[in-house]
């Protein structure tokens, strides 16, 4: 319990720092937000009016607190780029897409990495192991967006599995929506799955050298039983920490992959907002994405504690 409370305090502190850093970056480093939005041709009156509308005539801490309040309640005003549309509406519209992409990628990562690591570790030094190791080394260096371009070329253009550039909304047809996400999710997943395989393999091999494995064998456990019932349990724990970090990577990856496959998620919204200098939108998106990542990491840490009785006791 003490640990969870401590971890939550650290998380809150991190979230606070993240929001302060982002707020300062957008309100101090870049100068006056009003002149940023209106550009250089704006008149004094226009600037003054917008400043008052945005509440820029107040002091910085007051503005931070009111912005944070608005952020938490989802009342963030309108986007500069899409006039008349609210920021939270635009984000909520696109969030499910990115969320599905990220979840699908996570499923693929788990689906690939565990069997591959287990096969590799069971046949350490064998042909299959070496082949898998070579593949993981290559995949780690494979940039996700190049993989995505390759998928579009091979599966989209040469084999005609899908037509590049088309996107079906989840409201229209969930099945076709998920079908369209398979290749993008693979492009996000493969480099991360490779990191996971490498890490998990090392972790399993380390565990296999412990005495408890020999004890298990001497009690008559088969290689399979020893691996699955004893070794895997211990090897998973450090892998969970990595999984927390991989979630950040999934979001990083999907920002770019959405661009490659022209999927209208929050990554594309972010890039479009950067291109059109929609600062309030960028600021919100950055804090939003980072909050999700920090929460995922906290969750992973707490899960490890709950799973592992040794750490739970200590």
């Amino acid at each position: 319990m003490y640990f969870i409370a401590r971890r939550l305090v650290i998380t809150l502190l991190t979230l606070f720092l993240v929001s302060v850093l982002t707020f300062l970056a957008f309100n101090v480093v870049r100068g006056d937000p009003a002149s940023l939005i209106l550009g250089t041709e704006a008149t004094e009156e226009q600037l003054a009016a917008l400043r008052e509308e945005m509440g820029l005539d107040r002091s910085l801490p007051v503005r931070y607190v009111s912005w944070l309040g608005n952020f938490l309640t989802g009342n963030l005003g309108n986007s500069v780029r899409f006039r008349g549309e609210s920021i939270s509406g635009l984000i909520l519209d696109r969030l499910p897409v990115t969320f599905c992409l990220a979840c699908l990628a996570l499923v693929f990562i788990l689906l690939f990495s565990f069997p591959a690591a287990l096969i590799s570790a069971r046949r350490e030094g064998g042909l299959l192991d070496r082949l898998l190791c070579a593949c993981t080394s290559m995949s780690i260096s494979f940039p996700g967006f190049f993989l995505a371009v390759l998928f579009i070329w091979i599966f989209g253009i040469l084999l005609n599995f899908f037509s590049p550039g088309t996107y079906v909304s989840y409201r229209e047809s969930p099945a076709r929506f998920f079908g369209g996400l398979i290749f993008p999710a693979l492009a996000v997943a493969i480099p991360n799955a490779a990191i996971m395989v490498k890490f998990l393999r090392t972790s399993i091999l380390q565990q296999l050298r412990f005495d408890y494995v020999r004890t298990a064998y001497s009690k008559g456990a088969s290689a399979r039983a020893a691996l699955y019932r004893h070794v895997l349990k211990n090897a998973i724990i450090p892998a969970l920490t990595l999984l927390g970090m991989i979630i950040a990577e999934i979001f990083s990856g999907s920002i770019i992959i959405e661009q490659v496959f022209t999927i209208p998620g929050i990554g594309r919204l972010l890039i479009a907002s950067i291109a059109s200098r929609d600062y309030p939108m960028i600021q919100t998106l950055v804090v939003y994405i980072t909050f999700i990542v920090v929460f995922a990491n906290t969750l992973a840490d707490i899960c490890i504690r709950l799973i592992d009785p040794r750490i739970r006791a200590g």
Binding site: T14, A248, S252, I255, V286, I289, T290, V293, V294, N297
Partner: peptide, 8 residues
Amino acid sequence: LSSFPGIL
């Protein structure tokens, strides 16, 4: 700083 996803 490192809780921001890298590319972000």
